[in-house]
Design a binder for these strands. Structure first.
Lengths: 211, 211, 211, 211
DNA sequence: AATGAATGAGCATTCATTCAT
DNA sequence: AATGAATGAATGCTCATTCAT
């Protein structure tokens, strides 16, 4: 019907690296929709429509719906762990105490929530994905968890974080974070402000007490 | 196929009150499955199978899938607000300061998460429910939110809770709470322990600091 | 829920003949609903609801849904053929010419359409009823058709009806009749007027021409 | 299961216009079945089976069951009103009196009954269609009714048709027409003959009388 | 590289029907 | 005489997935 919409939006650039770019565009579209509607309420047709592309095209770039999730997970974890991504808030750099490093870590994952990448993973339906995907989860998630827990442990040791159970603390914060997109008070709490408020709040809870 | 499984499990007891008991059994089964798989991945067939009952039987007790959620919501909110339910941790009783009351409130809703009742609601797909259900949400949820926020405000005033934004704080805690069932470390954190740890952790974050 | 509605309405009278009365009440309710919604859109639940009775009760009086149609057919045909039913317009009485007798016949079946009894049968889904019902159709319908056709033949012979194919003429009129409930111009054509207009119109078409 | 039946029968011809051809084939299959069994007893599965095609295929060509009826209505009305369709019996041409034009109109709609297109619409369950379809009905049907009524009025004026109520007359004839497929005497009245007989019969009823 | 066409599996929902009471 | 409870079978519809082009 409409001829004015350009397929793939403005994603394309150079003639050869297009494959990866398009793959990324699908991932972002999927992440956005899945955050809004959840995994199973997001059909491949929805994703295709958002990109002005036909359904089978998705299958040219991904084996199946499951692989979309799997890739989303891989990319997200890579983004968290890669020192070259947003180096300004990469946590593991010398000269910072535990609290400072944890705050960087928080900013890092809060940004992924804002980009829709993280929260669609946190709430994904593990029981219904195929074994390969579940395995990827079990391999990838701990990579991040270990990093976070180690930062907390270091912070407790250097006195910048109040003594606590590192694992539970991290789960607590990630949990609160995954609920963040549900904060349905956009008037009172604009997008950026919520992220700041969140980091501040979490850090406050971890600060050591006197006595 | 199998004749050994008893329909309705061990739910039935006395001959007359069976209707409500069965309705409750369906609600519990639905809550359990919806917590694990989410609303739209939980089919009425799944619920029926779990109870060793046929699909249309569900329709004898509920008008449709939506009504199951609606009832779940109603029962849950009632349970939170009713002083006669678990009076030992009903928060609004005289002689307690804000922090003590909020801890009671937390124990109350943590228990509902353990029963699967709460967390399936927190993550429900509001966009896909019919207007009646959405309306019920919009009427019921604030009842609980207001109660919690008032407790926090009282606590700040009487000095038992550190100054904070009551709304954001409550959302933060509810978010962490709704993620609680995803804590997949059953070895390290047995069910009961997680609840205690959660309450303790949340309360610690709210305690006022010196200086 | 409701206690004020009396089951069976005011149908019941004497203690023993109740069975037939109730059977008749079911038939009338069925006819009414089936005329409005058609055979397959009329569920036994609808009929039961209309009578403030439970669904299995219908099964006490009729073997199945098909038997309801079958009985409806039998009763309707009986009503048409029985001289004691509405004797004022029973067609086969001495001293009347063919046209007069056919007008009586028309009034008779138009009344059954008004009572919902006939038109739900005329449009019934013969292909989907079970063999017994189809057989009943094949036995009963001709009884009426033969009577009507004979009246037309007599009218042609005595000169009161224009020469025509009796079978086709009757089908033509019955067809127009069965469409009568669809006349959706209630403002212009109130219920009673439509019946009169219909009879008049049909008779006019049959009147002999000069030359 | 069976490999011998060709999907789509012999409908396909040229490679590009297939979409419309297939859409038309579905419409014809739907019309045929709905005439035999009525709207609600005709499932999309039945239509698909008749075409040796799977159920979801229907959804590739039509949004839902309602749209099938809607299209059927549109095509039928278009066929009646379009002067280029069967121009040999298009009624509104100069040089014909009212009776001649009405006879052409009758032949036109009788042909649509033979093609199953018309009668499945005449008996459609308006109460159960969605608003869009009902609206289409309310817009389209009058187009045909007005044309027919105007022809009758013209015929009365030019003396070729006996004075009558144009609206009621048209309803009467359309009603008889819609019953035509139920004429279950194929031996005595072969398809073509019935159509001729019907037109002749209707016209005779409308012919003016002397005196 | 992308798409039109087609399908199997699944889901919410309805309904005729049965059975124990 | 009547009903509450339960179910198998069907129905409209969606969706992930495939295949030929």
């Amino acid at each position: 019907m409409v001829g004015s919409k350009r397929a793939w939006g403005n994603t394309l650039q150079k003639p050869d690296e297009q494959f990866e770019l398009k793959r990324g565009a699908i991932l972002r579209a999927a992440a956005q929709l899945m955050r809004q509607r959840g995994y199973s309420r997001t059909s491949l047709g929805d994703i295709a429509d958002l990109l002005n592309v036909s359904k089978p095209t998705i299958y040219y770039y991904f084996r199946n719906k499951d692989e979309v999730i799997r890739e989303l997970l891989r990319v997200t974890v890579e983004t968290i762990l890669d020192p070259d991504e947003h180096p300004d808030d990469f946590p593991n750099v010398p000269g910072l105490n535990g609290a400072q490093r944890f705050e960087r870590y928080l900013r890092r994952i809060v940004r992924l929530v804002a980009d829709d990448m993280l929260c669609c993973l946190l709430t994904a339906p593990k029981e219904m994905l195929d074994p390969a995907t579940v395995h990827e989860y079990e391999v990838c998630s701990p990579l991040v968890e270990r990093m976070a827990e180690q930062i907390i442990r270091d912070g407790i040791e250097d006195g910048s974080i109040a003594p606590c159970d590192p694992i539970a603390t991290h789960l607590f914060i990630v949990g609160a974070l995954s609920f963040l997109p549900n904060w349905s008070h956009p008037e009172a709490y604009p997008a950026g402000a919520v992220a700041d408020m969140f980091v501040e709040f979490a850090m406050q809870g971890m600060r050591p007490r006197q006595g």
